[in-house]
């Protein structure tokens, strides 16, 4: 569903992403780990066509994102680190607005259903978003993904700043979506959550994918050791 082939992004002399290739299939969650500046967000930004790659190609559902900037977005939902909505609109109105931008039209009952499905408590549905916490706003984002029937979910450090309970709820949502066949690419710093939720884990350093492993075949302790080794290697080098 998500295919990245030999993608490179250069900002003048700085190489943010270096010859990266990876694939996320339906029903898979790939967590990209790495320090700040490792190239995780740049990779997601290239998939969203927010940044054009210098070389290589990125495909969503078999379509090149540079050649099909609008079409590819029909298949995906993006949840940035700090998902922002229109503060003066209610949760329902925000969801309705973004659904309609994606060409989907739902009535109020359906919208409420999606919000409930995403875990947003019912009494918040008609509240203006300006009173919402980050976790609540992210639930509206997930509701959008459910409503749009997105095949791809791109998440950029979604759990940073969330309290453990909200974080846990969010992971449950991701697992449910994975089970529904959605391909999920998530950039995160949280090794524990990554191990818990993902099917695959990639560790990036200086724009390169240094390690790629099957989550089920590696324990949290091993994962931590691999991660620290890679990071320490960086420090030594």
């Amino acid at each position: 569903m998500i295919t990245i082939k030999n993608i490179t992004k250069k900002f003048n002399d700085f190489i943010a992403v270096n010859n990266l290739s990876l694939e996320v299939k339906e029903g898979e969650i790939l967590c990209l780990l790495g320090a700040n500046g490792a190239g995780k967000s740049t990779t997601i930004n290239m998939l969203l066509n927010f940044i054009e790659p210098s070389f290589g190609s990125a495909k969503i559902n078999g379509l090149d994102v540079v050649k099909n900037p609008i079409k590819t977005k029909n298949f995906l939902t993006y949840i940035p680190e700090n998902l922002m909505l229109y503060p003066t609109l209610t949760a329902i109105e925000n969801l309705d607005y973004f659904c309609k931008l994606s060409g989907k039209n739902f009535d109020k009952t359906e919208l409420k259903l999606y919000l409930t499905d995403a875990g947003l408590q019912e009494e918040a549905h008609n509240n203006r978003v300006k009173t919402f916490s980050k976790g609540m706003r992210q639930k509206v984002g997930i509701a959008l993904a459910i409503a749009k029937e997105s095949k791809v979910l791109l998440l950029d450090e979604p759990t940073s700043g969330l309290d453990p309970k909200s974080s846990n709820e969010f992971m449950d949502l991701l697992t449910r979506m994975k089970d529904d066949g959605v391909a999920i690419l998530m950039a995160t710093h949280d090794l524990f959550r990554a191990k818990e939720v993902s099917t695959h884990i990639g560790i990036m350093r200086s724009g390169k994918l240094e390690n790629y492993s099957d989550s089920s075949k590696v324990s949290l302790k091993e994962l931590e050791t691999i991660y620290l080794d890679i990071m320490n290697f960086k420090n030594v080098s």
Partner: peptide
Amino acid sequence: ELGTLRLLGAQPISVINW
């Protein structure tokens, strides 16, 4: 500045047309 542009940019629309 509000942060909604990133979400808009991820929708199947041309932001300039919008």
